[in-house]
């Protein structure tokens, strides 16, 4: 148990020292094909991460009646969640934008 606590503290301290943080962001996309919906959601999730590395988390796809505005139903909407790992200047920019 002690080892586990020490390990956790080490990880936390490294993150603090490095000026990094990991947050979960998500992107969504609606398309006629699930393949396109998945790819689009991933792109949007990546775009939603201000900078840095991303790690895919959950992916959820459902049928929708469509706000798609183009021919063809049913449409698929996918929501991709990713962990967004931001450090240094990128992190500073993120907080500047949130002011």
């Amino acid at each position: 148990m002690k080892s586990l606590i020490v390990a956790v503290l080490m990880i936390v301290s490294v993150q603090v020292y490095a000026g990094c943080e990991s947050t979960m962001v998500e992107g969504g996309h609606t398309a006629l094909k699930i393949k396109d919906a998945k790819a689009g959601a991933f792109e949007e999730a990546k775009d939603a991460c201000p900078a840095g590395d991303i790690t895919p988390a959950s992916l959820d796809c459902t049928k929708v009646d469509g706000d798609i505005g183009v021919a063809g139903k049913p449409a698929i909407r996918c929501i991709q969640q990713v962990y967004c790992n931001i450090c240094g200047d990128d992190l500073a920019r993120k907080y500047e934008a949130l002011e």
Partner: peptide
């Protein structure tokens, strides 16, 4: 190039 998701 991305596809159309929304209209109006």
């Amino acid at each position: 190039i991305r596809d159309q998701e929304r209209g109006g």
